[in-house]
Simulated assay, not measured.
Amino acid sequence: MRLDKVVPYFNIKIFIYFLIAVTAVYTLAFTYYYNFKDDGYILADWLINYQDGGFKRRGLSGSFFFLLQDLTGLSLNYLVYAVQFLIISGFFWLYTKLIRYKITDLLYLSLLLSALGFVGLLNTVTYVGKKEFIVFLLFTWFVYLLDRNKLTKNREYVFCIALFITTFLHEVVLFYVPYFAIALYLKTGRFKFKRYIKYFVAVGIPTVFILLLGKNVNEGMSLQILAERGVHPTYGIFYWNINEREYIRQHSSEYVLYLLSLAISIFHIGYYLKFLKDRKILSILLIGTFLFSLPLFYLAIDWGRWMYIHMMLMIILFALLLRNGQSVCAFEKIRVNTKFYITLFIIIFSLLYRVEMSGKGFTFEGILYRIFIAPVELLNKM
């Protein structure tokens, strides 16, 4: 049977809904699993607190959960997961609403299937449960309101307050705030620098406080405080004592592979931009945004994570540019041409490899490996 007779009937939108549902369930399930094994990152990062030594980066969330526990008597594991559940499910729900009446095509689907997109969550379990989901949720809500012309001045200030608070939860938000300015530009078609400044100020002020006044994540009593509250991590953020720049230098042969993954992603995004209007300006803005985040790559070892956040935010951003349709199942029928074959190649290759959060920048252990080969290897070992 010829491709041009079959592929036009493939409903891209329904497949995207399916992918969103699978990714959401997977993310929530593994976040639950790691929370209740007292994971040193997925749980413990939310429990960095001010009780141990005073003000520090990311400490607001832990003190908040301690207060909740004192008020309710509930386990920290349940309280943290409840908030993670609301944030993660809120993101997937809002993203679904954002694209519901959008006409999606195969090339847009390819972004979700990227090794650093939605499939990245299925490939690399360590991406689940992290605080960047707060940024995903805020940005998706922001783009959703923009798309529907409901972003009033008052709501803009609400977002600035939310970004201000989020920076105290995780300072990474500083390096991705340019996406909010780009979204505003794409909607208005004009640069309004005075309008953008408040977003940078909102994340800049808490960052300065953190740099000047912030103490160590663990001032010596964190593990004891957590143990008294029923949480016993045996590894992770509270044990972290690594010179990250030196670690990257010592593992340079592994980290250089991130450049390969980055090159693949640049080609992928570049090919997507080829079919957009004003692609030159948008390309420059995206390059500038990536350069703005470079200090992250210098300061911290989670290179795959930083790249994954970029891709997820671009997926949300590009949804703003999709054409509106009349149906929740609206999609652009696939035409078998050169664009189709290039996009199909990108999708297949994306499913072949994965990008780990830190250390391994490229391995041929993508979603196809994890579905078809890894289970067989496990059975052989058993």
Rank of each mutant, 00 (worst) to 15 (best):
F200Y: 08
F200C: 07
F200W: 04
V201L: 15
A202C: 08
V203W: 03
V203R: 03
G204V: 12
I205F: 09
T207C: 13
V208M: 12
I210Q: 05
L211R: 11
L213N: 12
L213Q: 11
G214H: 03
G214T: 04
N216I: 03
N218K: 09
G220C: 09
G220Y: 06
M221P: 10
M221D: 15
L223R: 03
Q224L: 15
L226F: 00
A227Q: 13
G230F: 01
V231H: 02
H232W: 09
P233E: 00
P233I: 00
P233D: 00
P233F: 00
T234W: 00
T234S: 07
T234Y: 00
W240E: 06
I242Y: 03
I242A: 02
N243M: 01
N243R: 01
E244M: 04
R245Y: 10
R245Q: 13
Q250N: 14
H251Q: 08
S252F: 11
S253A: 13
Y255D: 01
Y255I: 02
V256E: 04
L257D: 01
L257V: 03
Y258R: 01
Y258E: 01
L262V: 04
L262Q: 03
A263C: 07
I264C: 09
I264H: 02
S265M: 13
S265K: 07
I266T: 02
F267K: 06
H268Q: 06
H268L: 08
H268A: 03
H268E: 05
I269L: 12
L273K: 01
L273T: 02
F275H: 15
L276C: 11
L276S: 08
L276Q: 13
K280G: 11
L282T: 04
I284G: 13
I287E: 02
F290R: 01
L291C: 09
F297Q: 04
L299M: 12
L299V: 12
I301H: 12
D302C: 07
R305G: 14
W306A: 14
M307V: 10
I309V: 15
H310E: 12
M312W: 13
L313W: 09
M314F: 13
M314A: 11
L317E: 07
L317S: 08
F318I: 07
L320Q: 15
L320V: 11
L320H: 11
